[in-house]
Each structure stands twice: as structure tokens, then as C-alpha cells.
Amino acid sequence: MATDKIHVKTTINGRPEEFLTDPYVSLLDALREIVGLTGSKEGCLDGNCGACTVNVNGRIVDSCLVLAAEVDGQKVETVEGMASADGLHPLQQAFLEEAALQCGICTPGFLVASKGLLDNEPNPSEGRIRHWLAGNLCRCTGYENIIKAVKKAAENS
């Protein structure tokens, strides 16, 4: 494993960030193990569960399928960047009020994915929300309260 490390200069949640990474390291592992942001979760490492969803330059991606080196010069947003000094993001507030989480492991991914939808489509239909979130698995809630929370956040933002 004697490879040279790559220097990555990126923006994470609006702040400039620099780190060194091995070329094979995923964005998920870089966020969790190098940058220290453990809000993005490992569920499957093959892009099927969405627990690691982050936003890169306005697109939601499974961070387990993106190499850390690829975000050089890009803008990355994670669940840790959603709340501000003014308080929770409307989606976070709605998830709490609608009991849209049980164990909470999929919640960061659902929040980032939902924000990716509402940033571009402020008033999505229920069908659109369900379609958009079909890449994120939740095994606890049966999805209904997540859908309700996204609708409520859309109404409140």
C-alpha cells in the first residue's frame, strides 16, 4: 500500500478544508475518518442504502461511491451543515415533529437527500418525494412519516 497521498482542497459545509488522502479512499471514509464528520453513515458501501448521502456541487451522491480525491475544488454539504446559528433546518424540525426517525441511522442521508429535492423543487408532490427518496432505505418507519415531514418542511420553508 505504498502509494503517494493526494492533497485535496475542498469546501465542506461552506468552510475551506484541506486533507491528504490515499487515492483509494472514499469520500465517506475521508469525511468520517480524516475530516472527523461522522454524521454521514456507512450502511452498505455499495451505493444501495443511501445512509452516506451527501451533496456535491448541488447533486446528491452516495459518498461511499465517490473517491475523496474527486471532491478537490468541489463544494460538499453534509448533514452537519444543515442547521445554522438560527436553529435547525426546517427539514430537521419537521423530522422531529413528525417522528420521521426511529433508530436514526438513515436520517442524515434522508435529510441531505430531501434538502437536495427541496432546494430545486420547493413544492414536490407526494409521488415525487417518494420517487426521489427511493434511493434511501429506512427499515424502521415504513417511510410514511418521512414523506409527511418532507411535505411539512416544504410548506414551512
Binding site: 461522522t38 452537519e80 435547525l88 423530522f95 426517525l101 436514526g104
Partner: peptide
């Protein structure tokens, strides 16, 4: 809830 919607909650990993 607050820890779990902000990504702060500490799970095993």
C-alpha cells in the same frame, strides 16, 4: 432527537 437530526449522535462506528 436533536442529536439524531444533526448527525451528532454517536453510533458504534
Amino acid at each position: 432527537g436533536y442529536d439524531k437530526v444533526t448527525g451528532r449522535a454517536i453510533y458504534g462506528a
